[in-house]
Design a protein around this nucleic acid. Structure first.
Lengths: 218, 218
DNA sequence: GTAATTCCATAGCGGTCGCTATAGAAATGA
DNA sequence: TCATTTCTATAGCGACCGCTATGGAATTAC
């Protein structure tokens, strides 16, 4: 009974959704979740109390637990929403960029804009929301995600090396780690008050380190 | 009576230190403070409870409050100790480097070693210890310190520009912010498990962006 | 030795944490 | 309308938070 998940949410899009008996939920789940994303994004996992969450989500504590399980599940779901919306630009940049260089350049340039967008908290949720966290599982989950992003950049670079787009002696791991460090540093700078233009300057400077071969310009 | 500071610590090195009456403290203040530095460094300000502190410092709560005021004062003192020891390399690098380029190169290279030293927590206390902090004064204090470091790098670069060591059109602010972003990103990477060698690779790549004039090589 | 002083350990303060039992209100199918 | 179902709000659980009053032990000056 304790760890029982509300199977109402679990089985999405199965059949014509037979109207459940009894009183329906009086708040919009997605809207409330979006509010939770913002709270976690701004204050981090632990510094955002359930009391804070119920206030910004506009619901009572029992409703929160009925709809989202517990605080940790809500956070995990919030991270997932973030990754599918505000944070999706990074994956898109790496996938759609014609070259690794173009992909990373787009990654950093869009990060400058995204990290300083006044429409939401500054910086990257994945980078900051689980730092100084007394729940190791939560901290580790986001750490794994960050390291996976580094690996994704490295894979993109490695693909360009084998394709001859980058020199054969390119240190893909180091180059990827450098890009990730700049990315993460930009997020920190955004939190510390840097403007979009300033971060774009950082991105531009960082891109100067890339080796140029393959398509000789001019 | 409440905000009374122990004037025993306040007036240091004034006269031959007349032995205070009563039972002397039975623990070494500096040693206990060092333990607090480590705890705050590893877990951050809020995630380190007074209970954690008394345990690692090996003293009772009343002793802690008598010797250090309150948790926040202890943290501020810990930050000061950090800045004068483990974190002092950054200031030294900027002061002692013959050129801005050499200074930043030394800054990043020593950061790679310092951030991954197995003898203490990874990364930089100033960067991480006050993130996701519900006490704005604490968070702001470290933010100001980080931004002051960016300004220090910028000043060092600007000095080289006026000295002709760097091109006149050098964007000192952007170059400084880039170095700071790499520095902060390296700290994050260290926390996420990057090795010293990996961070040295990042530092080396990052240094490739620097313009070269003044002393033409060869 | 004696009195004065300061240490420290225990125990507990009010407050907040994440979480939940309870029960009344609201919306359902019949 | 009625009985059923599920919502929500209040209130409170035990645990921990930062912090401190109390009192006995330890060390001092005399």
């Amino acid at each position: 009974m304790h760890s029982m998940v509300n199977n109402q949410e679990a089985q999405a899009q199965v059949g014509p959704a037979p109207r459940p008996r009894g009183r329906p939920r009086s708040f919009d789940r997605a809207t409330a979740l979006e509010k939770a994303v913002m709270a976690f994004w701004q204050h981090g996992y632990e510094a955002t109390s359930v009391s804070d969450l119920t206030r910004v989500m506009g619901i009572g504590a029992p409703s929160l637990y009925a709809a989202f399980g517990d605080k940790r599940s809500l956070f995990e779901e919030a991270v997932q929403v973030y990754g599918g919306t505000y944070g999706s630009f990074s994956g898109r940049a790496l996938e759609e960029g014609p070259t690794a260089r173009a992909a990373v350049e787009r990654l950093l340039r869009e990060a400058a804009a995204e990290f300083t967008d006044p429409g939401h908290p500054y910086g990257c949720l994945v980078i900051h929301a689980a730092t100084n966290c007394t729940t190791p599982e939560v901290e580790d989950a986001l750490r794994r995600q960050r390291n996976a992003n580094v690996s994704a950049i490295e894979s993109r670079i490695r693909a360009d090396v084998v394709a001859g787009e980058l020199p054969a002696d390119t240190d893909a791991g180091a180059l990827a780690r450098h890009a990730a460090a700049v990315f993460q540093g930009m997020s920190q700078q955004a939190r510390d008050g840097a403007t979009r233009e300033e971060l774009e300057g950082v991105a531009e400077i960082a891109m100067a380190v890339w080796p140029r071969t393959g398509t000789p310009e001019g």
